[in-house]
Every structure is written in structure tokens, then in C-alpha cells.
Computed example of a mutant assay.
Amino acid sequence: MFKQEKTKLAVENSKEQNKISQGTKITGDIEAKGCFRIDGCVEGKVTTPGKVVIGKAGSVTGELSCENADIEGNFNGKLKISGTLSLRSTAVIEGEAVVARLAVEPGATFNATCTMRGGVKAIHNERGERERQKQEQSA
């Protein structure tokens, strides 16, 4: 019974949001279980299974790995987003992005190489399966 209570506490903590306020600069790697809002400056690697929001005044230089990201500020480095990357009109992105889905508002600056993962693989697999079935039927 004690283990179950501990597990519930860990799940509840992962829903809490971490915040890096404007005027704060962090250099180094950050790993968290909850979501993040960054209005300050981060230089390093940020890793979380949740969502990351980079506000208008926020800046990240390095690597960002998360489920979803909503960017209004600046990012320079490598993005690894397992879900949706949303770029607001004030966003400035430079570097490399690996995402499942991408949403870009008019006015956003996106100077990055982008690789789409996730749903695209399923489409390729379906096409490959259809072609293989056609070949088997014609043989």
C-alpha cells in the first residue's frame, strides 16, 4: 500500500510546472518530470517528458527534448519533439529539429533543418505494404 501512495505522489508532481523567470540565466543540463515555462535564458540541455513553453523573452541555446513545445522566443540548437512543435509569430528558431508535427504561425523565423517523425512512417509503411501486395497479386 505504501508503494501505491508513493506512485500517486510521483504522478501528481509530474503535472506541476517549473518556471525559469525573466532575468534568470541557467548554464547546464536540466532534467525534469514536469512541464517547463522558460522566460529567462538557458544554455545547455533541457529534457522533460512534458510540455515546454519558451516565452517571448525566453531563450534556449543547446538541446531541447520534450513531448510538445510552444515557442514564442528564441531557440538555437537541436530540438527533439516527440509530439507537436508550435512556433508563434515571434519565434526565432535556428539549428535542427526532429518533430512528429509542426505548426508555424505567419511571421515566425524557422532557419532549421527539419525531420518529421511519427505519422510519416506509417504512411510510408502503408504504401510499401500496398506495393508489396500488388506485386504478390500480379505474380
Rank of each mutant, 00 (worst) to 15 (best):
T47D: 11
T47H: 08
T48H: 08
T48A: 11
T48W: 07
T48I: 13
T48P: 13
P49Y: 02
P49I: 05
G50V: 06
K51E: 15
K51L: 14
V52D: 06
V52K: 10
V52M: 08
I54P: 10
I54G: 09
I54E: 02
G55T: 10
G55Q: 10
G55S: 14
A57H: 05
A57M: 01
A57C: 05
G58C: 01
S59G: 03
S59T: 14
S59N: 12
V60Q: 03
V60Y: 00
V60I: 12
V60C: 07
T61M: 13
T61K: 15
G62I: 14
G62H: 13
E63M: 15
E63G: 07
E63S: 15
E63N: 04
E63D: 14
L64Y: 07
L64W: 00
L64R: 05
L64G: 03
L64A: 08
L64E: 04
S65G: 05
S65I: 06
S65M: 00
S65K: 04
C66S: 02
C66G: 12
C66F: 08
C66M: 08
C66A: 11
E67M: 05
E67T: 04
N68I: 00
N68H: 01
N68R: 02
N68C: 07
A69G: 11
A69N: 10
D70H: 04
D70I: 04
D70T: 03
I71S: 04
I71M: 04
I71C: 10
I71Y: 09
I71F: 09
E72F: 12
E72Q: 07
E72L: 14
E72Y: 09
G73Y: 02
G73K: 05
G73P: 07
N74V: 08
N74E: 14
N74A: 13
F75C: 03
F75G: 03
F75Y: 02
F75Q: 11
F75H: 01
N76T: 08
N76G: 12
N76H: 00
N76W: 00
G77T: 11
K78E: 09
K78R: 04
L79W: 01
L79G: 14
L79K: 01
K80S: 15
K80V: 12
K80R: 07
K80M: 11
I81F: 08
I81L: 05
I81S: 01
S82E: 14
S82M: 13
S82A: 15
S82P: 00
S82Q: 15
